[in-house]
Simulated scan of single mutants.
Amino acid sequence: MTAPAKRRFWHDNSLTLAFGAGFLLVLAGQAVAGHAEFNEALAVDGLQPLAFGEYLMSSDFAVDVTENWQSEFLQFFLYIFGTVYLLQRGSPESKELHKAGPESERDQRMGGHARADSPRWAGTGDWRQHLYARSLGTVMAVLFLLSWFAQSVTGVAAYDEQQLRQLQDPVGWGAYLASADFWNRSLQNWQSELLAVAAMAILSVYLRQRGSPESKPVGAPHTATGVEG
């Protein structure tokens, strides 16, 4: 890849690359802080500390990571599907008020209205079109369910380790799914995600961020809906 091509690649993909790099840095920071906190808890119980590599392979680290992942994927799954029908007057996070619903094939450039540069499945008119037309929300839903399942598996392992350290009987996976620990981990994340989405939807009606597609143009009226800056 030539130098101009490399610069173009970084320019054209800077949003994904920046957030991807930020994710890895924050994940590393979480691992360091979590390792220290976990060893402090072991010391209080009179147990030997874990090496950093052992902590990275532990259920305690895995459950802390996956419980946050599943809430984020849930947020986007609900937001993607919810904004098909739900509206917020004056918000750039909402569609225009007259466009509630899945919209027509003409509006969505599907079937006979697909263009030469449209994705190939958009113009097929069969099951591929129906699948592709819902692929983003479907993938987010699958990622949510997979990460939630991973949280339940790693969560029961971490919970049972804590039970054994306290000389109590471990529980099975089914019992853990009905436990307060599992639902507390899930619900405390879900409520924060729902609050953040609601705040973004209503605050973007009245507040602006110049140059951001998540905001309306600075001079746009508060009632302008579905307009990005």
Results as ranks from 00 to 15, higher is better:
residue 135 S to F: 06
residue 48 Q to G: 10
residue 37 E to L: 10
residue 127 W to C: 02
residue 57 M to W: 07
residue 167 L to R: 15
residue 123 G to N: 04
residue 85 Y to R: 14
residue 208 R to L: 00
residue 24 L to R: 09
residue 28 A to M: 10
residue 175 A to G: 05
residue 80 I to A: 12
residue 182 F to R: 09
residue 102 P to D: 03
residue 37 E to Y: 03
residue 103 E to T: 09
residue 165 R to K: 08
residue 183 W to F: 01
residue 126 D to F: 01
residue 7 R to V: 14
residue 7 R to G: 15
residue 113 H to W: 11
residue 73 F to K: 06
residue 28 A to V: 14
residue 17 L to T: 01
residue 219 G to Q: 02
residue 55 Y to A: 05
residue 32 V to A: 11
residue 5 A to V: 09
residue 199 A to R: 06
residue 21 A to F: 07
residue 72 E to M: 13
residue 161 E to N: 14
residue 200 M to E: 15
residue 162 Q to M: 13
residue 74 L to A: 15
residue 68 N to W: 09
residue 215 S to H: 08
residue 112 G to H: 09
residue 226 G to D: 09
residue 32 V to H: 01
residue 98 H to M: 11
residue 183 W to R: 05
residue 47 L to Y: 00
residue 90 G to W: 06
residue 209 Q to N: 10
residue 121 W to T: 15
residue 207 L to V: 14
residue 62 A to D: 00
residue 192 S to R: 15
residue 39 N to I: 01
residue 172 G to M: 01
residue 185 R to N: 13
residue 38 F to V: 11
residue 94 S to P: 08
residue 94 S to Q: 07
residue 61 F to R: 09
residue 122 A to D: 05
residue 196 A to S: 13
residue 168 Q to N: 13
residue 84 V to H: 09
residue 86 L to G: 07
residue 54 E to V: 04
residue 128 R to V: 00
residue 78 L to N: 12
residue 211 G to C: 01
residue 47 L to K: 13
residue 148 W to N: 14
residue 179 S to L: 00
residue 4 P to A: 05
residue 88 Q to T: 15
residue 193 E to C: 11
residue 169 D to R: 14
residue 218 V to L: 05
residue 16 T to C: 10
residue 95 K to Y: 01
residue 51 A to L: 11
residue 195 L to S: 10
residue 1 M to N: 10
residue 173 W to H: 14
residue 129 Q to K: 07
residue 211 G to V: 01
residue 43 A to V: 04
residue 97 L to W: 08
residue 149 F to Q: 12
